[in-house]
């Protein structure tokens, strides 16, 4: 895949104007991680209500791929039942992105997804889910 296709309009748009970017004061699920090989950083906060992702925010810094992938992911999971969203696979995330990536850039694309899973399973495992 050439650079023009990789940095398609949608990717650059999500990079420059990320969706659901910022902090969530009422978050009851959250996680944060860093890609040590490049320094990219993503934090995710969610408000889980009645088993659904009522709201979600992310923050962080990094390349267009990592930021756009996370922005796209937040669009996709908001409003969905948490247990369903938590079962998302990496191929689902790559499909959202719609571009082919080299193994080195795959890590960038999946950092937000990893943090989302950490937040989701942290919540599901915490017992709050059953309340």
């Amino acid at each position: 895949m050439n650079a023009e296709a990789m940095y398609a309009e949608t990717i650059m748009d999500h990079y420059r104007h990320p969706h659901h970017y910022g902090a969530l004061p009422v978050a009851n699920a959250h996680a944060h991680d860093v890609n040590t090989s490049c320094g990219d950083e993503i934090g995710i906060q969610m408000e889980i209500k009645d088993g659904r992702i009522a709201d979600i925010r992310f923050n962080g810094k990094g390349c267009a791929i990592s930021q756009a992938a996370t922005s796209l992911l937040t669009d996709f999971v908001i409003g969905k039942p948490l247990d369903e969203a938590a079962r998302l696979q990496k191929d689902d995330v790559l499909e959202l992105l719609g571009i082919e990536l080299s193994p080195m850039r795959l890590k960038c694309a999946l950092l937000g997804f990893k943090v989302f899973k950490l937040a989701a399973y942290g919540y599901l495992g915490s017992g709050e889910y059953n309340d």
């Binding site: 650079a3 990789m6 940095y7 990219d40 390349c63 791929i65 960038c108």
Partner: peptide, 9 residues
């Protein structure tokens, strides 16, 4: 532009 994206291009 993040330098990693620049490097890819």
């Amino acid at each position: 532009i993040h330098p990693h994206d620049l490097t890819t291009v």
